[in-house]
């Protein structure tokens, strides 16, 4: 808290107003509108709204289609988070050693932060392409299994998991590297004196000391794969084959903008909102982010 401050009656309001106006108009108003709409049935052109209470929610609760989208979301997010965290921890641990060429290695990994998820999706789409892609071709040399994402749901999920993980790798590595650099050298030296080295040093010293970063990244990867990967699904699989890659955010979009079921879509938005709020609260409670007075 600052002790020295300026005194002015209206200036602080003027300074903070641009941000507050944007927050009110584009965050609070739409969020309340979503909350309100979730209790209505809306005609396809939006001209008639009938109050239905919690009916939209109860319809979702019994909808097998919705259950599948929840399941797909968790498989997808779990895959992205697990694959992303293990790969990036492995790379960060290597890139934290005292060796030559570190700057090159770090840049050669961190650049992936710039990849837009949909662009990543399109490149991976071609790598997975059943007739022309490199990966099915490679696999066809060792197996006769038809590795075709257009026919097999799990291959399609794998495709979008790879695309999302690739686009998010730079982010994860940057945080792991920063975390590794905060581990005091004295702790490492003490462990080495006690005879720890290589993997045991990593398993018993580095990994536990990194757990706050790992936890933070776990939450951020869940949030990323739940909310920021819409572009991959939309540009690559369109939720298919069948609904194998229809994750919750994509289903919300389909119901709202394609099937014109606004109320149902709004109810799904509210559920997503509850999820992201709980993830953020958990994250702030268990990591030491000191943004508050």
């Amino acid at each position: 808290m600052k002790k020295s401050i300026f005194k002015n009656r209206w200036l602080p309001y003027l300074l903070i107003s641009p941000q507050i106006v944007i927050v009110l108009v584009f965050f609070f108003w739409p969020s309340f509108e979503s909350l309100r709409l979730s209790a209505f049935k809306v005609s396809p052109f939006g001209d008639r709204q009938i109050f239905v209470g919690l009916e939209n929610f109860s319809r979702l609760l019994i909808s097998a289609e919705y259950h599948r989208s929840v399941f797909h979301s968790f498989v997808f997010s779990g895959g992205v988070t697990f694959l992303g965290l293990s790969l990036s921890l492995f790379i960060a641990a290597l890139a934290n050693q005292k060796i030559r060429g570190l700057r090159f290695y770090r840049t050669a990994v961190l650049w992936t932060y710039g990849i837009a998820p949909p662009v990543s999706g399109i490149i991976w789409l071609f790598i997975f392409h059943p007739s022309y892609g490199f990966l099915p071709y490679l696999l066809s040399m060792v197996t006769t299994y038809e590795f075709n994402w257009l026919l097999k749901g799990w291959v399609a999920i794998l495709l979008v998991i790879f695309a999302a993980t690739w686009a998010h790798l730079g982010y994860n590595v940057a945080f792991f590297l920063a975390g590794l650099q905060t581990i005091p050298k004295s702790v490492m030296d003490a462990a080495k004196v006690d005879g720890a080295s290589g993997f045991s040093l990593f398993r018993w010293i580095t990994f536990p000391l990194l757990s706050p970063v790992t936890f933070f990244l776990f939450i951020m990867n869940m949030v990323f794969s739940f909310f920021e990967t819409f572009g991959i699904i939309h540009a690559v699989t369109q939720g298919g084959p069948g609904d194998a890659t229809t994750i919750m955010v994509y289903k919300t979009y389909l119901d709202g903008f394609v099937h014109m079921r606004m109320g149902l879509s709004a109810a799904q938005s509210v559920i997503l909102m509850a999820m992201v709020i709980s993830l953020t609260v958990v994250q702030f409670r268990y990591t030491e982010r000191k943004v508050f007075y």
């Binding site: 507050i20 927050v23 739409p30 969020s31 509108e33 949030v223 909310f227 920021e228 819409f230 938005s269």
Partner: peptide, 24 residues
């Protein structure tokens, strides 16, 4: 004001997409 700005962290585009579109 501080809290209002903080809460925007919890409202990514996809969860308010339809209504934000209507507002715009």
């Amino acid at each position: 004001a501080f809290w209002m700005i903080f809460v925007t962290l919890m409202l990514p585009v996809p969860v308010r997409i339809i209504s934000t579109y209507q507002v715009v």
